[in-house]
């Protein structure tokens, strides 16, 4: 399946001389095509940096990132980012935000409109097409962000703590919506979060990163029966076990932070 991300011996250094800080060190990891992987780690572990490197917004210091065996060089429409701060264009309506990527890729107007409508419906925003982002709540804005990124059909979704600013019930609703979208569309998803429960609930694998400089600490395979309801899943023993093991692994890192 397309959409495989291969990260090899990745290193990212910011600044020069005494300002020099190593954000990511010797990270190798592979995300399978169509897989849902979450990345958790203590704050400052470089997980957002990792996401922006995969997106191609930042240059690697050394090592390579490849999508389906082709090393990336800069941003490309095979990857789509969902930003923590939504990054919607405030001067464009919901509809115009969703069509932006389609305009940029020269999709004819009629096709643009039907594709945009499809994804607006998918995130339950029909009726809000002509609203400006300022008129929307945080949760709605992020749904526009997701629709905008899905609309130009990237193979890989890169999500940077997309629900971090939302309150708990809304987060859960959007998590379920994202799971459904993933089931339907079969995208590769790399999901950054600091919320262990969110990571375990959503993903097939969780990459736990060490604290500064960030690298791979451990990887947890999550094998949950997803056909059940949220309540059945989160109250199950296996869910608790997965959560505890990820939490423990992460906690060792935060402990290190405290003793330092």
């Amino acid at each position: 399946m397309d959409g495989r991300v291969t990260i090899s011996e990745l290193e990212k250094v910011y600044g020069e001389g005494p300002e020099r800080t190593k954000a990511i060190e010797d990270l190798s990891f592979e995300v399978e095509g169509g897989e849902f992987v979450s990345v958790v780690g203590p704050s400052g572990c470089g997980k957002s940096t990792l996401l922006y490197l995969i997106a191609g917004f930042l240059d690697t210091t050394s090592g390579t990132i490849a999508v389906d065996d082709t090393p990336i060089s800069g941003p490309g429409t095979d990857r789509g980012v969902v930003f923590q701060d939504y990054a919607l264009f405030p001067w464009r309506t919901v509809f115009e935000n969703v069509t932006y990527g389609l305009e940029e890729n020269d999709i004819p107007k009629e096709e643009r409109q039907s594709i945009a409508q499809k994804y607006i419906d998918l995130v339950d925003l029909d009726g809000f097409e002509d609203k400006y982002p300022k008129e929307l709540s945080g949760g709605m804005k992020q749904r526009v962000g997701i629709a905008r990124t899905l609309a130009y059909e990237p193979k890989i979704l890169l999500m940077d703590e997309p629900f971090g600013a939302l309150d708990q019930p809304l987060r859960e609703a959007l998590q379920d919506q994202l799971r459904d979208i993933w089931d339907d569309l079969g995208k590769t998803i790399v999901f950054i979060t600091h919320d262990v429960e969110e990571a375990v609930y959503l993903s097939e694998r969780v990459l736990i990163m060490t604290r500064h400089p960030g690298t791979r600490k451990s990887v947890a395979e999550i094998d949950l029966d997803r056909s059940r309801t949220r309540e059945e899943i989160v109250t199950s023993d296996e869910f608790a076990q997965y959560k505890n093991s990820v939490w423990r692994s992460l906690h060792e890192e935060t402990q290190t932070e405290v003793t330092l």
């Binding site: 922006y52 997106a55 917004f57 490309g76 990527g101």
Partner: peptide
């Protein structure tokens, strides 16, 4: 910066960035 990045990922090149994103913003 994330507006510029958002446009980049959707295929906006450096030159059209000026009138597609920087000017309206």
């Amino acid at each position: 910066q994330s507006l510029v990045w958002a446009a980049q990922m959707m295929g906006t090149d450096e030159r059209s960035m000026l009138y597609k994103v920087v000017f309206p913003a």
